[in-house]
Design a protein around this nucleic acid. Structure first.
Length: 383
DNA sequence: CGACGGGACGC
DNA sequence: CGACGGGACGC
C-alpha cells in the first residue's frame, strides 16, 4: 500500500466535503485534474488520448521545462566537446520541438465533473512504462500554495511514511509525503518485493503542504525536535527548488556503457507497444528490419542528412539528446577539408525513442537546411 | 538535385 | 557526517 510509492489520502481529501478552511476560500474545480509522475517520453497528445478514454476533454497541457541555456537540451556536450556552446546551433534552442523536457506533470480539464471523478478512480495509480501516475484534482493556482515543500532529515530509520504524515498533519493539509530509501528501483519493478524487502530508510524525506504558511509553521514547531521514540533531533526546512538542481547532468561515468546510460533514460522498450498504432512507426520498423540495417545489436543507428559543412558532433547531441538515450554520434567529414560531407550518424539505445526522434527531426529546419532523418540503411560506396 | 562511416578477434 | 523524491499548480 504505502510502499507502492503512491501518496496517501490526497484524492479523497480533495474531493471530499471537508471545508477548505485555509487560504482565500477559492472553490476548487471539479473538472480540472493534475496528473503527476508521467513518463518522461509521454507527449501532451498521448496524455489527451489517454484521458479522452474517460470522457470529453476540454483542455490538456503537459508542463515542459522552459528552455534555458545550459539546460537539459545541451547536456551531452559535456562528453563530446565541452568547449562547444549551445549558441553554435542555430534554431535548436528556439525550436518548438525542443522547448524543454517534460516536467512529468500536466493538467487535464474535463467538460463534465463526473468524468473528472471517473478519471481519478480509473487512472490514478495506472502504471505507464516505469511510472505509476497520480491523478488528482488540481488546486486553484495561487502564490499561497507555492514553496510549500519541506525537506526533513534526521528521521529515525524505522519511521514510516505513515508515521511521518502523522507527525506533520497537525500543521496542515499534506499533499505528498515521502521517505527516501535505498533500492527504490527494486521496490518499483519486482512485484511483491516492495512488501517484503522495503528499502532501508535513508532517514530523510519530504512533506508537501497545501499552503506555504502551513509549511512555515511546521518548520517552527518541528525543526530541532526529537520524535517520540527517537534520540536525535530532526531538521525541517524548505526543500530545494527542483528547477535549480543539476540532476539533468549525470556523472560522466553514466555514459561509459549502454547499460549505465539506460538508467538515465527510462526503461528498455521493445519494438512494439505504445507506437504500434502509428502507421509511420510501422514503416520505420519495416525498413529497419532489412538485413544489415539500423539495429546493430547495441543500439539503433540513425542517418542524418543535409548537415552544414561546419557541423560538429555537439549539434547531433543537442538534436537527439532530448529524445532519449544517445550512445554515439558521428559527423562524417571529408578527409582533406575536414568539413562535414553533409551527413552523420546517431546511435540511440531504445527503439521507441529513436522512432520519436526520427519522426520529430525528419523535416526539421536547422539553420536554413531541412534535415532528412531516418534509420540507417546499408548503402555503401564499396558494395 | 544531392544521400548511408569506421572500426573491428571475443565469446 | 550529510543526505533533496518520481522536477506538484499552468516553464
Amino acid at each position: 500500500m504505502m510502499s507502492n510509492g503512491l501518496d496517501s489520502g490526497v484524492v479523497g481529501q480533495q474531493n471530499g466535503s471537508s471545508g477548505n478552511s485555509v487560504g482565500g476560500g477559492q472553490e476548487e474545480s471539479k473538472t480540472n485534474l493534475i496528473v503527476n509522475y508521467l513518463p518522461q517520453t509521454m507527449t501532451q497528445e498521448e496524455i489527451r488520448s489517454l484521458f479522452s478514454s474517460i470522457g470529453e476533454v476540454e483542455s490538456c497541457k503537459l508542463i515542459r521545462d522552459k528552455v534555458t541555456a545550459g539546460g537539459t537540451v545541451g547536456w551531452p556536450n559535456s562528453i563530446n566537446s565541452p568547449e562547444k556552446m549551445d549558441s553554435e546551433v542555430p534554431g535548436v534552442m528556439t525550436s518548438p520541438l525542443l522547448t524543454g523536457q517534460s516536467l512529468g506533470y500536466g493538467f487535464v480539464n474535463y467538460h463534465r465533473p463526473e468524468d473528472a471523478e471517473k478519471a481519478i478512480n480509473t487512472l490514478n495509480g495506472l502504471r505507464l512504462q516505469n511510472k505509476t501516475i497520480k491523478v488528482s484534482f488540481a488546486r486553484p493556482s495561487s502564490e499561497a500554495i507555492k514553496g510549500a515543500n519541506l525537506y526533513v532529515s534526521g528521521l529515525p530509520k524505522n519511521m514510516t511514511q505513515q508515521d511521518l504524515e502523522t507527525l506533520f498533519s497537525p500543521f496542515g493539509r499534506i499533499i505528498t509525503s515521502r521517505i527516501l530509501c535505498d533500492n527504490i528501483t527494486v521496490r518499483q519493478f519486482v512485484s511483491g518485493a516492495g512488501e517484503n524487502l522495503p528499502g532501508l530508510s535513508k532517514g530523510v524525506g519530504f512533506i508537501r503542504f497545501d499552503q506555504r504558511l502551513e509549511a512555515e509553521r511546521a518548520i517552527q514547531e518541528l525543526n530541532g525536535t526529537i520524535p517520540k521514540g527517537s534520540t536525535e533531533p530532526i531538521t525541517v526546512k524548505f526543500a530545494n527548488n527542483p528547477s535549480n538542481n543539476n540532476k539533468s547532468i549525470p556523472p560522466l561515468a553514466a555514459y561509459l556503457t549502454p547499460q549505465a546510460t539506460r538508467r538515465f533514460a527510462g526503461p528498455i522498450h521493445h519494438p512494439t507497444g505504445r507506437f504500434r498504432y502509428s502507421p509511420l512507426a510501422g514503416d520505420l520498423l519495416a525498413n529497419s528490419m532489412l538485413p544489415g540495417n539500423a539495429m546493430n545489436g547495441s543500439g539503433w543507428c540513425i542517418f542524418v542528412y543535409n548537415l552544414a559543412p561546419e557541423t560538429e558532433e555537439n549539434v547531433l547531441w543537442q538534436l537527439f539528446g532530448p529524445f532519449g538515450a544517445v550512445q554515439s554520434v558521428k559527423v562524417i567529414r571529408d578527409l582533406q577539408t575536414n568539413k562535414c560531407k553533409g551527413f552523420g550518424f546517431v546511435t540511440m539505445t531504445n527503439y521507441d525513442e529513436a522512432v520519436v526522434a526520427i519522426q520529430s527531426l525528419n523535416g526539421y529546419t536547422l539553420g536554413n537546411r531541412v534535415l532528412q532523418v531516418s534509420f540507417k540503411t546499408n548503402k555503401s560506396k564499396t558494395t
